[in-house]
Simulated scan of single mutants.
Amino acid sequence: MTLPVPYVDVHGTPGECGFAYGEAAREQIATNLDLYAARFSAVGLSPAATRNAGDRFRAETSTRFPRIAEMLDATAEGAGVTPGDIYALNARTELIYGSTPDDGCTVLGALGTHTATGHTLIAQNWDWHPDQRGAMLLLSTTDERGHRIVTLTEAGMLAKAGLNSAGLGICVNMLTTDQDGVRGAAVPYHVVLRAALDETTLGRALKAVVPSPRNASLNLLIGQSGPGGGELIDLELVPGVAGWLHPENGVLAHANHLETSLGVRDLANDFGGSTLFRSARARRLLIAAAEPGKLTEDDLVAVLRDHQSYPNAICRHVDEQDAYAERSETVYTVVMDLDERRFGLAEGPPCEHDLDWVSA
């Protein structure tokens, strides 16, 4: 198996998985902690302040999702770092992005009723600073119940885009609203992602994530294989409230602004950007590809390679006009076949690379 990132495969209880993960990814976790220490410092957070914030997120995670907390605690132990630092890493969105949206990431989904194979497909471009590429890995965990999760993640975190052995998968992108940072106790954005992947049915995943106490807004495209072409739903998760979108013409797409009426202020109004057209364009391209026949994985990849408004496109490239610290590009592309439990991954803007595949 050839993959563009380190591959960590662990087994056992949450504690055993976490410790083995921390040991195996010690170097990448140290790199990621250094990257975010600089980002935390840039917004005025000292190491002590970030660690204290991590401890607060740890307390709420332990109450709400004890198995995830057990794994994160053990990850810290295996990596030889403090739990507060690991939880701060998992809460990097909450700690850094109180006001500035990340104008990147596009997620796609297609029901099996509209695909050539009859399989449910989801996909995304994950856009972030290019320096982050060196601190990424593909994490596979199989717990004591036999439940397997394969997820692309930043080292020290437990999830980002991922797929589990029950045919349930998620893609994610950020939202920014006036409700971010205004609530007290919360679980980190990235813990919410892991909570979805820990479940074996779409209904249970929704029960886990919709009422979760949050302090940052996110968009979660979640799907599961099954009869009748499987199912997809897009969740706009804002602190204290959620909105949801269903497939139209068999497809879903989302970028970094709200598309449901939640009664909150979307901070995309303050910044504009490519998010305002990316999701609509992606839907239009998917529907057009479906008209002459059925959608394929290649059709989804073609949408993720779209260069309209280059470099600020669905296929994101570095904009040389941006300050270095604010640069963004498509760091990785992910495509998932939920029926076959196949996870495809490409490094860098997808126009430049093909996907490598692993099974869940």
Rank of each mutant, 00 (worst) to 15 (best):
G78V: 12
P66W: 05
E340I: 00
A37I: 00
M136G: 08
N256H: 08
G263T: 03
Y36G: 00
V8D: 02
D85W: 07
R194K: 13
V335D: 02
G78T: 11
I122P: 05
Y189P: 00
V150E: 10
T115F: 04
L89V: 10
G250W: 00
L202K: 11
A302W: 01
N269A: 14
L218T: 13
A38G: 07
R67K: 08
W357E: 03
P188I: 10
H353P: 01
P227C: 03
L139G: 04
T100H: 13
L345I: 15
N219D: 11
A88G: 05
P247D: 11
T117H: 05
C17H: 01
G272Y: 06
H11R: 15
G293Q: 08
V210C: 11
E347K: 07
L111Y: 09
Q124L: 08
T142E: 12
A325N: 06
T120P: 11
G156K: 09
D322E: 15
R341D: 08
S217K: 04
N90V: 06
F19R: 15
R342E: 13
P292A: 04
G18E: 06
T120L: 15
G344S: 12
L168F: 05
I122Q: 01
D34P: 00
A110N: 07
F40D: 04
L72K: 08
H190L: 14
D34S: 14
